[in-house]
């Protein structure tokens, strides 16, 4: 990088302009999130200047954490949060098992048609998912599965499967085939090779696929509002959307709900930003 920079000297003026541009875009990206956080802690009186000076965008004068308690109680956000976690976790588990097995079956065992099969799975990257909503909904209602968490877990797993296979295949390429050969000579069958040798070496793929699937499930709305949306339980995005109807006048609790629904992804992003970025790049560059 140092070497690069000495060659890529930029003039002072372009450099200043460039950083102004970057600073501006940083502000455009951060401000809505900052504002969401600050208004979640304010009262309407403070926001709109009723009986006190207006403070729409500044830091809260008094930090009203009570807004969070209100949001959690009224919207049953705790329960919705738990549902979202459980549904995401189960979908991640299924995607991981299915995509690791399928990738192994297509790249490590030689058979005619493995290439074609892989292309078949990659169709899932371009198909608009909404197109499956009505048949899935009608089938689930027929067997009485709507409003059960399973009704969301399985479709979610199906939607992330193509990406799971794509990412896993990329990582599996990096594991030398000699390992498989050696295991075979030692009398190890394909299943034992898969479980004891390949899977432990796929840890980076596991985290990348897991995070990708998590983001898909956590933020999904259309299927969640159709297949799993009752007074007994819903996911966080659906719950937050409903809360909005009840609290149109009181901004603080709405902001609190928005923050509660957002912070898990932001925390995960802070920890795993590299994996997350890689998973998005892998999908585009190889797909």
């Amino acid at each position: 990088m140092d070497n690069n920079e000495s060659i890529n000297k930029i003039g002072l003026l372009p450099k200043i302009l460039m950083y102004i541009l970057l600073a501006f875009w940083t502000a455009v990206n951060i401000f809505p999130i900052y504002w969401m956080f600050t208004f979640s802690l304010k009262s309407n009186n403070e926001l709109f200047g009723i009986g006190e000076p207006m403070n729409l965008i500044g830091l809260p004068r008094k930090w009203l954490w009570g807004n969070y308690a209100k949001a959690v109680q009224t919207g049953n956000l705790g329960g919705n949060f738990f549902n979202s976690i459980l549904i995401s976790a189960a979908a991640i588990l299924i995607v991981l098992i299915a995509s690791l097995m399928a990738t192994y079956g297509m790249t490590r065992i030689e058979w005619r048609g493995s290439e074609l099969m892989n292309r078949f799975f990659m169709l899932g990257l371009t198909i608009p998912l909404h197109a499956s909503l009505i048949p899935v909904f009608l089938a689930m209602s027929k067997i009485g599965m709507t409003n059960m968490r399973m009704a969301l877990i399985i479709p979610y797993a199906a939607f992330s499967l193509s990406m799971g296979i794509l990412i896993s295949a990329g990582f599996m390429e990096d594991i030398p085939k000699d390992l498989d050969e050696a295991a075979k000579i030692d009398g190890c069958g394909v299943w034992r090779t898969f479980i004891t040798i390949t899977v432990p070496l796929m840890k980076p793929a596991v985290s990348t696929v897991g995070i990708y699937t998590f983001l898909q499930c956590w933020n999904e709305f259309m299927f969640a509002s159709v297949l799993y949306n009752s007074s007994k339980g819903k996911t966080l995005p659906v719950g937050v959307k409903d809360l909005f109807g009840q609290y149109t006048t009181d901004w603080g609790p709405i902001g609190a709900a928005l923050v509660i629904a957002t912070f898990p992804t932001l925390i995960i992003y802070v920890i795993f930003s590299k994996n997350i970025q890689e998973s998005f790049i892998a999908g585009a560059v190889k797909g």
């Binding site: 999130i33 709405i254 629904a261 932001l266 992003y269």
Partner: peptide, 23 residues
């Protein structure tokens, strides 16, 4: 910068919608 510019992608679009209703 790269990491910051990617943040909006991670937020649920439903949440973004509710936020912009307020904006």
């Amino acid at each position: 910068f790269l990491s910051i510019f990617f943040v909006p992608v991670l937020i649920s679009t439903i949440i973004i919608g509710q936020l912009f209703i307020k904006i």
